[in-house]
Design a protein around this nucleic acid. Structure first.
Lengths: 199, 199
DNA sequence: CGCTGTCGTTCCGTAAACGGAACAGTCGGG
DNA sequence: CCCGACTGTTCCGTTTACGGAACGACAGCG
């Protein structure tokens, strides 16, 4: 792990909050020299120092050291999705992904079960996604939503990689499939990136 | 964060692999005294030391530093938000939260830095949120977006608790060189929702 | 112009984290 | 028994990360 990367992230997080190095050092109870060296990557910070700084920034230590893939990640032709959270509600099951779409020819995904909807929030780049016969387009900051019981596509418009969050909503209608539709992330992810057998 | 907890995890990981303290110290290239003190929590380890040890154990640093069960949760009057992920892009830093809004009187949050936008996807319930003087409403499946450089509110409509995902976008700070003002996607969003001008 | 405050960096003495060596304790073989 | 190889802990000199102070740069104000 590169201490320079850690330092850049600390500085970025600090500047986003609009507080100065001196102020953050005082709030975190560390010396200004320590914080300055930490942000430049010229020091080899102590766990205590990192903890004090990140606690004041309100982020977990993971935010600085997030080199490994936190969750199960799938790679498709153009789409790379990381599962962030799965949770069930009274009437539906939700899966929240962080998605990246590489520029190029895009990717086609098969239909989901009836009633499944997808909700995409675009962070960066321009994304064209939705039903294969009528895709929608959204720039950074935009939002897309469609019923994905038909084949649907994901395509990055332009040369920039698209970053987005993808929410899949599976309505709870009792599925008597013997295949024990579990909440196993791997099977769910497989649906996204890889054609699965239609029943 | 308790260094004793970190030490216990290191020792547990090491013993799971059936290797001795001496050999791990030798493989990781750290002194036995360092590793012993680290496992006992009597030292305040350096990032370099932690990295060397975890690399030999084959686990990410987060395995030692991640909080049990979840990230930090922010509790407000009506809003409970847990930070899921922080990631930085070329243009901005994003913080993705899972948010719950309890029914009843809402909650008012102070303004963020200029250019910061919030993106909310509602999973369940009906949410009214946005700038305090002009909030927006979205049912389950809906999506809200606003520029949060003004005080903004979160309110659950009805008796049902609201579940949603909240994305905070902090654009990278670039001091206003108006002559070099390029087509920044943030600008478009700002115009749509609220014309934020320099004071 | 100086005065005053804050910005971030650099200098420096001190405290402590570091690696190497020496330490007691344990196991198995000659 | 003795020995050697090993365990993990403790001692110690060196290295270095630490916080405080001093520094130059910049901005607002009289």
């Amino acid at each position: 792990m590169d201490p320079v990367v850690v330092g850049r992230r600390v500085r970025a997080l600090r500047e986003e909050r609009g507080i100065s190095l001196s102020t953050l050092a005082r709030l975190a109870g560390v010396g200004k020299a320590t914080l300055s060296g930490l942000e430049h990557g010229t020091r080899n910070p102590t766990l205590e120092t990192l903890w004090a700084v990140t606690a004041q920034l309100g982020v977990p230590l993971t935010a600085l050291l997030t080199e490994p893939a936190a969750g199960p990640t799938v790679h498709g032709a153009a789409v790379t999705a990381t599962l962030l959270e799965v949770f069930t509600d009274t009437d539906a099951t939700y899966e929240l992904y962080r998605m990246r779409v590489a520029p190029g020819p895009g990717q086609l995904s098969p239909a989901h079960q009836p009633g499944v909807t997808e909700h995409v929030t675009v962070f960066a780049g321009v994304l064209r996604a939705g039903p294969a016969d009528a895709p929608l387009t959204a720039p950074a900051g935009g939002h897309l939503r469609w019923v994905s019981d038909v084949p649907h596509s994901y395509t990055a418009v332009g040369d920039e990689e698209v970053a987005a969050s993808l929410l899949l909503r599976y309505p709870r209608h009792r599925e008597p499939t013997d295949q024990a539709r579990t909440v196993d992330p791997t099977t769910e992810i497989a649906i996204i990136s890889r054609p699965s057998q239609e029943p």
